[in-house]
Nucleic acid binder design. Structure first.
Lengths: 172, 172
DNA sequence: ATGTCTGCAAATCCTTTGCATTTTA
DNA sequence: TAAAATGCAAAGGATTTGCAGACAT
């Protein structure tokens, strides 16, 4: 699921398709937005680059070697990154969010396994038609949210049936 | 946004398109599922029938004349209703949910105004193609979530700009 | 009669806020 | 050195849980 918010921030320009984002370019974007490049921020960006897929705040915090920075800082940094369009936030059914680097391309959509919680990307899926209609109806600042859920093949063995679901059944 | 979960519950059959759900048929489904038809449950179903659109738990609780039942009971009843497919739950960006009667037809999609939080229905929008692909990939128990956000026409006046957004900006 | 709900209070979970201290530019 | 970021502790809001009493069947 993706929150494809259209940022109004002047510095929220996405990187060009041709040149993939690097840790350096990400830092430059921070500086360009009058934000400071600190050790926690670099570490957090690092985990995002390492995953290249949606990660939870909790996960990132644990990934940070010896939890080098406070959970609160992770929250604040990601909110800051999102405000300049550096990361994209995905809202899950269970009320939590995942963050991923915002590439220059259109937002990606995912399938989330109800059992193990793993996410997989899914091919292009267009919602522009619907948004166009909404614009015609007078809506502004459009954004949307699309997410698919299911049980992935590896999780369909009997053994998995007794596992605690990553996303409790009653919430999905 | 809609959580179009495919319930596996034997009694979760939806009412036939031809015959719209009534308070009576809803109660019958409760009984059929070995659930009891209590005063709070009837009242809650009542507010759902009255709205015929997604409603928040808080909203339902306030609607109940003199808050005739506890907020906790509203939570529990809705969870119970959802477990037998009587209602559909929608998860909002701000971490809360909306519930609506599960009609026999395909799930409806909505636009949620970022300012006032009002929801409007949007015309058919198909995700079956994507789900079909996922089935081919081996996923089972598919469900999905689709929601659009924007600022509705009435909320675009200057006055509205200072209003506290129903969904804080940093969450959408 | 009995297994199911309900209400109330308290607990939990995730996220945000306040503020003094540290850090970056 | 001035503005911005961090850590820690504590607040906040939504939802859940435990348990004794009330209720539907």
């Amino acid at each position: 699921m993706i929150a494809a918010t259209q940022s109004n921030h002047p510095l929220a320009a996405v990187s060009k398709p041709g040149e993939p984002m690097t840790l350096e370019s990400a830092c430059m974007r921070l500086r360009a937005a009058q934000m400071r490049v600190t050790k926690p921020r670099i570490a957090i960006l690092g985990t995002l680059f390492r995953h290249q897929s949606p990660v939870s705040i909790e996960q990132m915090h644990q990934d940070l070697a010896n939890k080098s920075c406070d959970l609160v800082t992770v929250y604040r940094c990601l909110a800051a990154f999102e405000s300049i369009g550096l990361v994209r936030r995905s809202f899950l059914h269970n009320g939590t969010s995942l963050y991923e680097l915002a590439t220059g391309c259109a937002p990606n959509y995912h399938v989330v396994c109800k059992t193990c919680g793993k996410t997989e990307q899914i091919e292009a899926f267009s919602v522009t038609g619907v948004e166009q209609t909404l614009v015609e109806r007078g809506y502004t600042q459009l954004s949307h949210l699309v997410e698919f859920f299911g049980v992935c093949p590896p999780c369909q063995q009997t053994s998995a049936r007794n596992a605690t679901p990553a996303i409790p059944d009653n919430r999905v």
